[in-house]
Amino acid sequence: MRALWQKLYGWLDERIGFDDFYKNLLDRPEPRGNWWNTLGSASLFLFIMQVLTGIFLTVYYNPSPDHAYESILYIMNDVQFGWLVRGIHHWGASLMVLVVFIHMLRTFVTASYKYPRELTWLVGIGLLLITIGMGFTGYLLPWHQMAYWATTVGTAIAGSVPFLGDFILQALRGGPDLSALTLQRFYAAHIWILPLLLGGLIGFHLFLIIKHGESHWPDKED
């Protein structure tokens, strides 16, 4: 048995190269960090939780004005642990916005956006904006009063852009008013477009962090 396992490990190692992974990804030297340095990984953890619980929610959720609300009631009342999955997704969303924002503040305070990490910052701002976009699109999905009217106002804000306002408003809503089309496109944005962008940019963000290493806590010399 043990021999078989070793053989399998050897075969995989030859093709994947676990040692390289270990050396380049895990066994990296880092400046002495403190607890503020965990905010980025906390954001990543929350993202993963949101992806998992989000995927689970799509198993029962139905993005149509007729059934969105009922399907969420079903998740909350009838599906086993549905309240837990939705609860984590709901609170995780709020917490993710908060943690990503504080992560941005931490980076600002320690001036980690400076050479050679300018691009990491740029991507990071993109991540912050997409995270807020996830919050905005996700808020409509339960199709309750609060969601409906908040989104009416939210999209109207985008509609106040001079000249292009009406066009932007209709593009966001899929028509002059909130409708089934709005719900459907917010759903598509929330589960496909924005998460894919977010995932891709997170990958790039992580690549840049590994390439340049985590910034050190600045002292008087810096």
Binding site: M49, L52, F56, V59, D78, V79, Q80, F81, G82, L84, V85
Partner: peptide, 15 residues
């Protein structure tokens, strides 16, 4: 803690 409720969640209608 995530995995076990997830399974119950997914198979819930069958139960």
């Amino acid at each position: 803690v995530i995995g076990i409720p997830s399974i119950a969640y997914l198979i819930s209608p069958a139960l």
